[in-house]
Protein backbone atom coordinates (compact mmCIF):
# COMPACT_ATOMS: atom_id res chain seq x y z
CA UNK A 1 0.00 0.00 0.00
CA UNK A 2 1.48 3.36 -0.96
CA UNK A 3 0.50 6.97 -0.97
CA UNK A 4 -0.76 8.05 -4.36
CA UNK A 5 2.17 10.21 -5.36
CA UNK A 6 5.24 8.99 -3.54
CA UNK A 7 8.83 9.50 -4.73
CA UNK A 8 8.95 5.98 -6.20
CA UNK A 9 5.96 6.66 -8.43
CA UNK A 10 7.48 9.90 -9.70
CA UNK A 11 10.82 8.17 -10.44
CA UNK A 12 9.12 5.30 -12.27
CA UNK A 13 7.09 7.81 -14.25
CA UNK A 14 10.25 9.47 -15.56
CA UNK A 15 12.20 6.22 -16.03
CA UNK A 16 9.49 4.36 -17.94
CA UNK A 17 7.29 6.94 -19.62
CA UNK A 18 6.13 4.36 -22.18
CA UNK A 19 4.21 2.44 -19.56
CA UNK A 20 1.88 5.36 -18.94
CA UNK A 21 -0.77 5.38 -21.59
CA UNK A 22 -1.92 8.88 -20.87
CA UNK A 23 1.57 10.29 -21.41
CA UNK A 24 1.14 9.44 -25.11
CA UNK A 25 -1.43 12.14 -25.68
CA UNK A 26 -5.11 12.33 -25.09
CA UNK A 27 -7.35 9.65 -26.50
CA UNK A 28 -9.74 10.52 -29.27
CA UNK A 29 -12.78 8.50 -30.27
CA UNK A 30 -12.56 6.30 -33.37
CA UNK A 31 -15.70 6.80 -35.38
CA UNK A 32 -15.31 3.70 -37.51
CA UNK A 33 -13.74 0.93 -35.41
CA UNK A 34 -14.09 -1.75 -38.14
CA UNK A 35 -10.39 -1.51 -39.05
CA UNK A 36 -9.35 -1.96 -35.42
CA UNK A 37 -11.75 -4.88 -34.98
CA UNK A 38 -10.41 -6.61 -38.06
CA UNK A 39 -6.76 -6.15 -37.03
CA UNK A 40 -7.59 -7.37 -33.56
CA UNK A 41 -9.44 -10.40 -34.87
CA UNK A 42 -6.40 -11.39 -36.97
CA UNK A 43 -4.02 -10.93 -34.04
CA UNK A 44 -6.27 -13.03 -31.79
CA UNK A 45 -6.44 -15.82 -34.35
CA UNK A 46 -2.65 -16.07 -34.36
CA UNK A 47 -2.38 -16.07 -30.57
CA UNK A 48 -2.23 -19.52 -29.01
CA UNK A 49 -0.73 -18.65 -25.62
CA UNK A 50 -0.08 -15.50 -23.59
CA UNK A 51 1.91 -15.17 -20.39
CA UNK A 52 2.73 -11.99 -18.52
CA UNK A 53 3.39 -10.47 -15.14
CA UNK A 54 0.96 -7.95 -13.79
CA UNK A 55 0.73 -5.22 -11.19
CA UNK A 56 -2.73 -4.49 -9.88
CA UNK A 57 -3.57 -1.19 -8.20
CA UNK A 58 -6.83 -0.68 -6.44
CA UNK A 59 -7.48 3.03 -6.16
CA UNK A 60 -9.62 4.06 -3.25
CA UNK A 61 -11.04 7.37 -4.39
CA UNK A 62 -12.08 8.76 -1.03
CA UNK A 63 -9.20 7.43 1.02
CA UNK A 64 -6.51 8.61 -1.45
CA UNK A 65 -4.81 5.26 -1.16
CA UNK A 66 -3.72 2.44 -3.43
CA UNK A 67 -3.67 -1.24 -2.64
CA UNK A 68 -1.00 -2.89 -4.77
CA UNK A 69 -0.85 -6.59 -5.57
CA UNK A 70 1.37 -8.46 -8.02
CA UNK A 71 1.22 -11.70 -9.89
CA UNK A 72 1.45 -13.64 -13.11
CA UNK A 73 -1.09 -14.84 -15.61
CA UNK A 74 -1.06 -17.48 -18.34
CA UNK A 75 -3.59 -18.11 -21.06
CA UNK A 76 -3.83 -20.97 -23.51
CA UNK A 77 -6.41 -21.45 -26.21
CA UNK A 78 -9.22 -22.27 -26.10
CA UNK A 79 -10.32 -21.76 -22.53
CA UNK A 80 -7.41 -22.20 -20.17
CA UNK A 81 -6.38 -19.45 -17.76
CA UNK A 82 -4.05 -19.34 -14.78
CA UNK A 83 -4.29 -16.14 -12.73
CA UNK A 84 -1.93 -16.11 -9.76
CA UNK A 85 -1.29 -13.45 -7.11
CA UNK A 86 2.17 -13.74 -5.59
CA UNK A 87 2.48 -10.54 -3.53
CA UNK A 88 1.58 -9.68 -0.81
CA UNK A 89 -0.36 -12.95 -0.55
CA UNK A 90 -0.78 -16.14 -2.54
CA UNK A 91 -4.05 -16.67 -4.39
CA UNK A 92 -4.56 -18.80 -7.46
CA UNK A 93 -7.43 -19.06 -9.95
CA UNK A 94 -7.40 -21.67 -12.73
CA UNK A 95 -10.10 -21.71 -15.37
CA UNK A 96 -10.01 -24.81 -17.51
CA UNK A 97 -12.80 -25.73 -19.92
CA UNK A 98 -15.74 -25.11 -17.65
CA UNK A 99 -14.10 -25.68 -14.28
CA UNK A 100 -12.91 -22.98 -11.93
CA UNK A 101 -10.32 -23.87 -9.27
CA UNK A 102 -9.45 -21.42 -6.49
CA UNK A 103 -6.65 -21.83 -3.98
CA UNK A 104 -6.81 -19.22 -1.23
CA UNK A 105 -3.84 -19.93 1.07
CA UNK A 106 -4.75 -23.42 2.37
CA UNK A 107 -8.36 -23.39 1.22
CA UNK A 108 -9.04 -25.06 -2.13
CA UNK A 109 -12.33 -25.02 -4.00
CA UNK A 110 -13.52 -26.31 -7.33
CA UNK A 111 -16.59 -24.94 -9.14
CA UNK A 112 -18.37 -26.28 -12.20
CA UNK A 113 -18.88 -23.04 -14.09
CA UNK A 114 -21.57 -24.52 -16.37
CA UNK A 115 -23.83 -25.23 -13.39
CA UNK A 116 -23.49 -21.73 -11.96
CA UNK A 117 -24.79 -18.78 -13.99
CA UNK A 118 -22.87 -16.19 -11.97
CA UNK A 119 -19.52 -17.98 -12.33
CA UNK A 120 -20.21 -18.55 -16.03
CA UNK A 121 -20.55 -14.78 -16.39
CA UNK A 122 -17.40 -14.10 -14.37
CA UNK A 123 -15.58 -16.65 -16.54
CA UNK A 124 -16.68 -15.00 -19.78
CA UNK A 125 -15.71 -11.53 -18.51
CA UNK A 126 -12.25 -12.68 -17.33
CA UNK A 127 -11.60 -14.55 -20.58
CA UNK A 128 -12.87 -11.58 -22.58
CA UNK A 129 -10.62 -9.17 -20.68
CA UNK A 130 -7.50 -11.33 -21.03
CA UNK A 131 -8.07 -11.91 -24.74
CA UNK A 132 -9.37 -8.36 -25.16
CA UNK A 133 -12.44 -9.44 -27.17
CA UNK A 134 -15.02 -8.49 -24.60
CA UNK A 135 -16.30 -5.79 -26.97
CA UNK A 136 -17.70 -8.54 -29.22
CA UNK A 137 -20.34 -9.28 -26.60
CA UNK A 138 -22.84 -6.61 -27.68
CA UNK A 139 -25.62 -8.00 -25.51
CA UNK A 140 -23.66 -7.36 -22.33
CA UNK A 141 -21.62 -4.26 -23.16
CA UNK A 142 -21.94 -0.99 -25.02
CA UNK A 143 -18.53 -0.43 -26.62
CA UNK A 144 -16.77 2.72 -27.72
CA UNK A 145 -13.29 2.89 -29.24
CA UNK A 146 -10.47 5.41 -28.72
CA UNK A 147 -6.86 5.89 -29.79
CA UNK A 148 -3.75 7.99 -29.33
CA UNK A 149 -0.28 7.70 -30.88
CA UNK A 150 0.61 4.52 -28.96
CA UNK A 151 -2.60 2.85 -27.86
CA UNK A 152 -6.09 1.76 -28.65
CA UNK A 153 -8.60 1.86 -25.84
CA UNK A 154 -11.97 0.14 -25.70
CA UNK A 155 -14.50 1.46 -23.22
CA UNK A 156 -17.19 -1.00 -22.20
CA UNK A 157 -20.32 -0.03 -20.32
CA UNK A 158 -22.30 -2.97 -18.93
CA UNK A 159 -25.90 -3.24 -20.09
CA UNK A 160 -27.13 -5.90 -17.70
CA UNK A 161 -28.54 -4.41 -14.50
CA UNK A 162 -26.87 -7.00 -12.24
CA UNK A 163 -23.46 -6.15 -13.73
CA UNK A 164 -24.10 -2.39 -13.54
CA UNK A 165 -24.46 -2.66 -9.78
CA UNK A 166 -20.78 -3.41 -9.27
CA UNK A 167 -19.12 -2.30 -12.52
CA UNK A 168 -19.73 1.07 -14.13
CA UNK A 169 -17.10 0.73 -16.85
CA UNK A 170 -14.27 -1.49 -18.10
CA UNK A 171 -11.43 0.01 -20.13
CA UNK A 172 -9.04 -2.22 -22.06
CA UNK A 173 -5.85 -0.70 -23.47
CA UNK A 174 -3.98 -2.27 -26.39
CA UNK A 175 -0.50 -1.59 -27.74
CA UNK A 176 -1.00 -0.13 -31.22
CA UNK A 177 1.91 -2.09 -32.72
CA UNK A 178 1.06 -5.65 -31.72
CA UNK A 179 -2.42 -5.27 -30.17
CA UNK A 180 -1.36 -6.84 -26.88
CA UNK A 181 -3.48 -5.93 -23.86
CA UNK A 182 -1.31 -3.55 -21.84
CA UNK A 183 -3.76 -2.35 -19.22
CA UNK A 184 -7.15 -3.21 -17.85
CA UNK A 185 -9.21 -0.75 -15.80
CA UNK A 186 -12.32 -1.70 -13.87
CA UNK A 187 -14.38 1.25 -12.61
CA UNK A 188 -16.96 0.83 -9.88
CA UNK A 189 -20.08 2.93 -9.27
CA UNK A 190 -18.53 4.14 -5.97
CA UNK A 191 -15.72 5.89 -7.85
CA UNK A 192 -13.10 3.32 -6.85
CA UNK A 193 -11.26 1.68 -9.70
CA UNK A 194 -8.68 -1.04 -10.27
CA UNK A 195 -5.88 -0.90 -12.83
CA UNK A 196 -4.05 -3.99 -13.95
CA UNK A 197 -0.86 -3.29 -15.92
CA UNK A 198 0.65 -6.17 -17.87
CA UNK A 199 4.35 -6.37 -18.66
CA UNK A 200 6.96 -8.84 -19.87
CA UNK A 201 4.32 -10.34 -22.12
CA UNK A 202 5.27 -13.47 -24.09
CA UNK A 203 3.13 -14.75 -26.92
CA UNK A 204 2.94 -18.30 -28.30
CA UNK A 205 5.45 -19.90 -25.96
CA UNK A 206 5.39 -23.57 -25.08
CA UNK A 207 2.96 -23.42 -22.16
CA UNK A 208 2.28 -26.97 -20.98
CA UNK A 209 -1.22 -28.09 -19.98
CA UNK A 210 0.13 -28.93 -16.51
CA UNK A 211 0.04 -25.21 -15.66
CA UNK A 212 -3.75 -25.32 -16.03
CA UNK A 213 -4.39 -28.61 -14.30
CA UNK A 214 -7.16 -28.55 -11.74
CA UNK A 215 -5.98 -30.70 -8.83
Amino acid sequence: MHMKYNLGTILVFFMFPGSFVFSQGSLTEINNPASFKQKFSEATRKTQTIEADFIQEKNLSILSEKIITKGRFMFKKEKKLRWEYTEPFHYLIILNNGTMFIQDEEKKSKIDIRSNKMFAEINSIIMGCVQGNLFNDEKKFLSSFFENSRSFMVKLKPLASNLKEYLSEIRIFFDKDDLKVTRLEMHEPSGDYTNIDFFGEKINTNLTDEKFLVP
Binding site: M1, Q56, K58, L60, I62, L63, E65, I67, T69, Y85, Y91, Y166, L167, M186, E188, S190, D192, Y193, T194
Partner: peptide
Protein backbone atom coordinates in the same frame (compact mmCIF):
# COMPACT_ATOMS: atom_id res chain seq x y z
CA UNK B 1 -8.71 -7.85 1.27
CA UNK B 2 -9.88 -5.93 4.30
CA UNK B 3 -8.57 -2.39 4.45
CA UNK B 4 -9.00 -0.53 7.74
CA UNK B 5 -8.21 3.16 7.99
CA UNK B 6 -8.69 5.78 10.66
CA UNK B 7 -10.24 8.85 9.05
CA UNK B 8 -10.41 10.95 12.21
CA UNK B 9 -10.33 10.46 15.96
CA UNK B 10 -13.87 9.07 15.99
CA UNK B 11 -14.10 7.58 12.51
CA UNK B 12 -12.77 4.36 10.99
CA UNK B 13 -13.38 3.13 7.44
CA UNK B 14 -13.70 -0.61 6.70
CA UNK B 15 -13.39 -1.73 3.10
CA UNK B 16 -13.65 -5.32 1.90
CA UNK B 17 -12.89 -6.10 -1.75
CA UNK B 18 -12.20 -9.27 -3.68
CA UNK B 19 -8.71 -10.08 -4.96
CA UNK B 20 -9.50 -8.53 -8.35
CA UNK B 21 -10.33 -5.26 -6.62
CA UNK B 22 -14.12 -5.13 -6.74
CA UNK B 23 -15.70 -3.85 -3.53
Amino acid sequence: LFYLKRISLNSIRILFSNELGMN
